Simulated scan of single mutants.
Amino acid sequence: MCRHVCAAGAIRFEEGERGARLTLWHNSCVFCGLCSHYCPTGALSVTGDWRLDHRAVDAFAQVERGEVPYAPCSGCGDPIIPAAPQLLHAAFRRPTPEIEKLTTLCPACRRRMSIGAPVR
């Protein structure tokens, strides 16, 4: 979600072999706060510390990179990016076991489960 709402395009996710790679360019950030507002997991926050400002020559020096590792789908075993527990508890006050199982399924297995078909 953060990538989609970033007005400056400072956030990028790419598929990797072991997981989704995150790149965050601080030089592009305009401190609008949309990423932290819409972040369902609370993983991002915006600072008012303007000392992070830098000269144009140092534009690409302030970059953060990370990786979210894949986990196997509990239905078919395909690699998926696991849902964050914070997201589940933010959406539902008391998630049921069925809802908790959805977080470990790929989209195809979630569709099968939602229509009552057996999940592999």
Rank of each mutant, 00 (worst) to 15 (best):
1 M>L: 02
3 R>D: 09
4 H>L: 13
5 V>Q: 04
5 V>C: 08
6 C>P: 08
6 C>G: 06
7 A>I: 06
7 A>W: 03
11 I>P: 03
12 R>W: 06
13 F>N: 01
13 F>G: 01
13 F>T: 00
14 E>R: 14
14 E>N: 09
15 E>D: 11
15 E>R: 14
17 E>P: 04
18 R>I: 01
18 R>W: 07
18 R>D: 11
19 G>V: 07
19 G>W: 07
20 A>P: 00
20 A>L: 15
22 L>Y: 03
22 L>T: 01
23 T>Y: 07
24 L>T: 01
24 L>V: 13
25 W>L: 12
26 H>R: 05
26 H>I: 01
26 H>S: 03
26 H>N: 05
27 N>M: 03
27 N>A: 15
31 F>Y: 05
34 L>F: 07
36 S>A: 15
36 S>V: 06
36 S>M: 06
37 H>M: 05
38 Y>E: 04
38 Y>P: 00
39 C>V: 05
39 C>R: 05
40 P>S: 06
41 T>E: 07
41 T>G: 03
41 T>A: 14
41 T>Y: 00
42 G>V: 02
44 L>C: 00
45 S>D: 03
46 V>Y: 09
46 V>S: 10
50 W>K: 10
52 L>G: 15
52 L>T: 06
52 L>N: 10
53 D>Y: 05
53 D>C: 06
54 H>S: 11
55 R>Q: 12
56 A>G: 09
56 A>D: 13
57 V>F: 13
58 D>Q: 07
58 D>S: 07
58 D>T: 01
58 D>W: 00
59 A>T: 09
60 F>E: 15
61 A>Q: 14
61 A>M: 11
61 A>T: 11
62 Q>D: 12
62 Q>Y: 14
63 V>N: 09
63 V>W: 11
64 E>P: 00
64 E>N: 04
64 E>H: 10
64 E>V: 09
66 G>S: 15
68 V>W: 13
68 V>N: 02
69 P>G: 12
69 P>H: 09
69 P>W: 08
70 Y>I: 07
72 P>S: 10
76 C>F: 11
77 G>K: 10
78 D>M: 10
79 P>W: 13
80 I>T: 02
80 I>R: 08
80 I>M: 05
81 I>P: 06
81 I>E: 15
84 A>F: 09
86 Q>I: 07
87 L>R: 08
88 L>K: 02
89 H>L: 08
91 A>R: 14
92 F>K: 03
93 R>H: 08
93 R>V: 07
94 R>M: 02
96 T>S: 15
96 T>G: 02
97 P>Q: 12
98 E>R: 15
99 I>F: 04
99 I>Y: 03
100 E>N: 03
104 T>P: 03
106 C>M: 10
106 C>T: 13
107 P>K: 08
107 P>T: 05
108 A>N: 12
108 A>D: 14
110 R>A: 12
112 R>P: 02
113 M>K: 12
115 I>S: 15
116 G>P: 07
117 A>F: 09
117 A>R: 14
117 A>D: 13
120 R>M: 08
